[in-house]
Write a protein that binds this DNA or RNA. Structure first.
Length: 501
RNA sequence: GUCCCCAUCGUUCAGUGGUUAGGACACCGCCCUUUCACGGCGGUAACACGGGUUCGAGUCCCGUUGGGGACACCA
């Protein structure tokens, strides 16, 4: 580094949103940012993007912390550890955003807009119906002072929008792809400040990245199309651009963007299902490349098996991972390979550690202690514990159709109802009372007697028609795994039904 | 519909103008083994297509096709 041209210290961040279970995509981008920072002696920042109060989930933030710690991806600055650029929770920075919005309003880079959400929705729908690109029509771009006064007098809520230039284009550099250019007529007048006073991602993200002196924005590819908005914002503020690195999106088997409908995405699920964090990290490191294959020399000198070229630790990634090697095709998150990898790690464990891994997860005192009361009155010898509780310890459980299809229903109806149950369970806190109320409600709505309703769920969870109490079992088994079991059940049954036809 | 990104075995990653196109997972076969795994050995399997550039293209350029993403007062 020359004194005339000092490079600022590397600072990167991940910015997860606390809207549910910690996501495997967050872990992927987290790993990449972690590696990038550590390899360059930089700082890795964790910022919580909690500006969406409608989707906010209260314990989500803690789960994100836990999941990232489980993976050993330690951050240098964040809401829980502090740091010189805090606060690191966007909900605590609203004044900062407001003052920056004022700057844009004054400089003419933004304007207030008074349409209601309903009006905008109607406009969008008609545009889509007319096969037009859905875009804000700019109606309030040039409101006169008197018109604004009228709206304000009416007490109409306003948002603040970015005033994207009509003419021209915005270009930026993606470090992996080179120059990317967007014509301004394809860039919408994005809302920057919502009517509830909270910023949108676009504004908060740019303001925070600048104030937190982020040098490299390493995020998922889905952000490319909104990057011109961000670039326009940096320019409007007169700020220097960070480097942008857009990473390929993790995919489902059908190549669509990874989603909970088609793939387990919750890190809680992987932890509770007995995946080892090293295996998960290794697998994520495999996604998109980045690790050079072992050289001829390494194979000879270390005597390593060729196949071990796919097996590497976090320290090895720190040493060898190369961002310029990342391939841009979206990698399929292949559970089969993850399981193989996990098996490799399991087999490599010394026996005592393997035993401890079992005791820490599937046979933890805590888990057994919570299961025990569910069976105490139901068994006559302790050995019967196994028959009664097998489903708690299995990965795969699949009831026979006789066990889950009520006499008065068809298989199709039953699967459709199971899908409804799944949607419901996803949205319901896992407490006895809330689960019970929700399930009973859906039974009433869909005309499913409580007995059939609960029996279906029991069959899906336990594979049997007799079991410990259903809701308690569901809770002890755990939300992440229970939802996965339901999704697997529905998918498998649909597939079977399709092959029968 | 508009814009943007991407393109090597089923999946994943090698291959950076001259290769019998390589490894891993998966799959198949054989061996080991009381079973099942593990392990060992072997096998099937890919450069999407069409034009260029070049003595020579999986590698460079253009187009087509295909896939994906974005188009919210969500991130």
């Amino acid at each position: 580094m020359s004194e005339l041209d000092p490079q600022p210290p590397i600072r990167v961040r991940i910015a997860p949103s606390p809207t549910g279970d910690p996501h495997v995509g967050t872990a992927y981008i987290g790993l990449l940012n972690f590696l990038y920072a550590r390899q360059r002696g930089g700082k890795f920042v964790l910022r919580i993007e909690d500006t969406d109060r409608a989707r906010f989930v209260s314990d989500s933030e803690q789960m994100i912390f836990d999941a990232l710690r489980w993976l050993d991806l330690a951050w240098d600055e964040g809401p829980d550890v502090g740091g010189p650029f805090g606060p690191y929770r966007q909900s605590e920075r609203t004044e900062i955003y407001r003052s920056h919005v004022d700057l844009l309003l004054v400089s003419g880079h933004a304007y207030r807009s008074f349409e209601t959400a309903e009006e905008l929705d109607a406009m969008r729908k008609s545009q889509i119906a007319a096969k037009l690109p859905p875009r804000y029509n700019g109606a309030h771009r040039e409101l006169s002072a008197s018109q604004i006064a009228v709206y304000e007098a009416e007490g109409r809520p306003a948002v603040v929008r970015l005033k994207v230039p009509v003419e021209g284009e915005t270009a930026f550099r993606d470090e992996l792809r080179g120059a990317i250019t967007f014509s301004h007529n394809n860039v919408d007048d994005q809302v920057l400040l919502k009517s509830d006073g909270f910023p949108t991602y676009h504004l908060a993200n740019v303001v925070d990245d600048h104030l937190m002196q982020i040098t490299d924005v390493i995020r998922a590819e889905e952000w490319i199309s909104s990057t011109p908005k961000h670039v326009l914002l940096y320019k409007a503020f007169g700020w220097e651009l960070p480097r942008f690195w857009h990473m390929p999106l993790l995919r489902n088997i059908d190549k669509s963007k990874i989603s909970k409908r088609k793939n387990p995405v919750s890190l809680i699920y992987y932890r509770e299902s007995g995946f080892l964090p090293q295996a998960m990290l290794n697998f994520l490191g495999l996604m998109g490349g980045g690790m050079a294959q072992p050289t001829e020399e390494e194979i000879v000198s270390k005597g390593i098996n060729i196949k071990q070229g796919d097996i590497f630790s976090l320290p090895e990634m720190l040493e060898k991972f190369d961002f310029k090697r990342i391939s841009l095709g979206g990698p399929v998150f292949d559970l089969t390979k993850l399981k193989w990898l996990n098996g490799e790690y399991l087999r490599a464990l010394p026996p005592e550690q393997f035993f401890q891994a079992l005791r820490a997860t599937i046979f933890s005192d805590d888990y057994l202690r919570r299961i025990a009361p569910l069976v105490q009155t139901r068994i006559e010898t302790l050995a019967q514990f196994g028959e009664m509780t097998d489903f708690f310890f299995k990965d795969d459980v699949m009831p026979a159709p006789e066990a889950f299809v009520p006499k008065a229903r068809t298989l199709e109806e039953t699967l459709a109802f199971a899908a409804e149950q799944l949607v419901l369970l996803e949205a319901t806190p896992f407490t006895h009372d809330e689960l019970e109320a929700a399930l009973k409600q859906i039974g009433v709505d869909k005309q499913w007697p409580v007995k059939d309703n609960f029996m279906l769920l029991r069959a899906i969870l336990t594979g049997k028609t007799a079991s410990p109490p259903l809701l308690e079992s569901l809770i002890v088994f755990g939300r992440a795994r229970a939802l996965d079991r339901m999704r697997r059940f529905i998918d498998t049954q649909k597939r079977l039904a399709a092959t029968r036809k």
